[in-house]
Deep mutational scan, measured.
Amino acid sequence: RDEDEKEKIKEALKRGNEDKAKEIAKRANVSPEEYERLRKEAE
């Protein structure tokens, strides 16, 4: 379940949809550090 959320965040970031990614991260309680890591992976 947690991994699904992280995949959704990465997908949103790949599409350049940072607002959606942040919204998912907030809902999934993803830490800022984890969010940054996902953002780097998505580049």
Results as ranks from 00 to 15, higher is better:
Glu36Ala: 07
Glu3Pro: 11
Lys14Pro: 00
Glu18Thr: 11
Ala12Pro: 00
Lys6Leu: 15
Leu13Thr: 01
Gly16Pro: 02
Glu33Pro: 04
Arg1Met: 13
Arg39Tyr: 05
Arg27Cys: 05
Pro32Tyr: 10
Gly16Met: 03
Ala21Cys: 03
Glu33Phe: 05
Ile9Tyr: 01
Ala42Trp: 06
Glu36Gln: 06
Glu11Met: 10
Tyr35Val: 04
Lys22His: 08
Arg37Ala: 09
Arg39Trp: 05
Ala25His: 01
Pro32Leu: 11
Ser31Glu: 06
Asp4Arg: 12
Glu34Val: 05
Ala21Val: 01
Lys6Arg: 15
Ala42Thr: 07
Glu33Asn: 06
Lys40Pro: 01
Glu23Ile: 08
Lys20Trp: 13
Glu3Asp: 14
Ser31Met: 06
Lys22Phe: 07
Glu41Ile: 08
Arg39Gly: 03
Lys14Leu: 10
Ala21Gly: 03
Glu11Ile: 08
Lys26Glu: 11
Arg1Ala: 15
Lys10Asp: 02
Lys8Trp: 08
Ser31Thr: 13
Ala42Ile: 12
Arg15Gln: 15
Lys14Trp: 05
Lys20Ile: 14
Lys22Trp: 10
Glu33Arg: 05
Glu43Tyr: 15
Asn29Ile: 03
Glu5Phe: 15
Ala42Asp: 02
Glu43Met: 15
Ala21Trp: 01
Glu11Gly: 08
Glu41Val: 06
Lys10Val: 07
Arg39Ile: 06
Ile9Val: 06
Asp4Pro: 08
Lys10Asn: 02
Asp19Ser: 12
Arg1Ile: 14
Gly16Val: 01
Glu23Trp: 04
Lys26Tyr: 08
Ala21Glu: 01
Ile9Trp: 01
Asp4Leu: 13
Ala21Ile: 01
Leu38Lys: 00
Ala28Leu: 15
Ile9Lys: 00
Asn17Cys: 06
Asp2Glu: 14
Val30Gly: 00
Asp4His: 11
Glu43Thr: 10
Ala28Pro: 01
Arg15Tyr: 10
Lys22Leu: 14
Arg27Pro: 02
Ala21Tyr: 00
Ala21Leu: 01
Lys8Asn: 09
Ala42Lys: 02
Ala28Gly: 07
Lys20Phe: 13
Glu3Phe: 12
Lys26Gln: 13
Ala21Asn: 01
Ile9Cys: 03
Arg37His: 06
Leu38Gly: 00
Ser31Tyr: 03
Ala42Leu: 09
Arg1Gln: 14
Glu34Met: 04
Lys22Asn: 06
Ala28Val: 07
Ile24Asp: 02
Arg27Glu: 10
Glu36Ser: 04
Asp2Asn: 13
Arg39Phe: 05
Tyr35Leu: 07
Lys22Met: 13
Lys14Asn: 05
Leu38Arg: 01
Lys8Gln: 14
Lys8Ile: 06
Asp19Lys: 13
Leu13Asn: 00
Arg37Pro: 00
Ala12Arg: 02
Ile24Lys: 01
Asp4Ser: 13
Glu23Val: 06
Ala28Cys: 11
Arg37Lys: 10
Lys22Val: 08
Glu7Val: 12
Glu36Arg: 04
Arg39Thr: 05
Lys6Thr: 09
Lys8Arg: 13
Gly16Ile: 01
Lys8Leu: 13
Arg39Asn: 03
Lys14Phe: 05
Glu3Arg: 12
Ala21Thr: 00
Lys10Phe: 06
Ala28Asn: 12
Pro32Cys: 06
Glu23Phe: 04
Tyr35Pro: 00
Glu3Met: 11
Asp19Ala: 15
Glu36Met: 07
Val30Thr: 05
Glu5Ile: 15
Lys40Ala: 14
Lys8Phe: 06
Asp2Gln: 14
Arg1Asp: 14
Ala12Gly: 01
Val30Trp: 04
Ala25Ile: 02
Pro32Met: 11
Lys14Tyr: 05
Ile24Gly: 02
Lys26Val: 10
Arg1Tyr: 14
Ala28Glu: 05
Lys26Leu: 13
Glu3Lys: 12
Glu3Gly: 12
Lys8Val: 05
Ala12Ser: 06
Glu36Cys: 12
Lys6Gly: 08
Glu43Phe: 15
Ala21Lys: 00
Lys40Ile: 14
Glu33Tyr: 05
Arg15Trp: 11
Lys40His: 13
Arg15Cys: 07
Asn17Gly: 03
Ala28Asp: 03
Glu5Cys: 08
Val30Leu: 14
Lys22Ile: 11
Asn17Phe: 13
Glu33Gln: 09
Ile9Ala: 02
Ala12Cys: 05
Glu33Thr: 08
Asn17Leu: 14
Lys6Ala: 09
Arg15Thr: 11
Asp4Glu: 12
Lys6Gln: 08
Lys14Arg: 15
Asp2Val: 14
Arg27Gln: 11
Glu34Tyr: 02
Arg1Ser: 14
Leu38His: 00
Val30Cys: 04
Ala42Phe: 07
Lys10Glu: 02
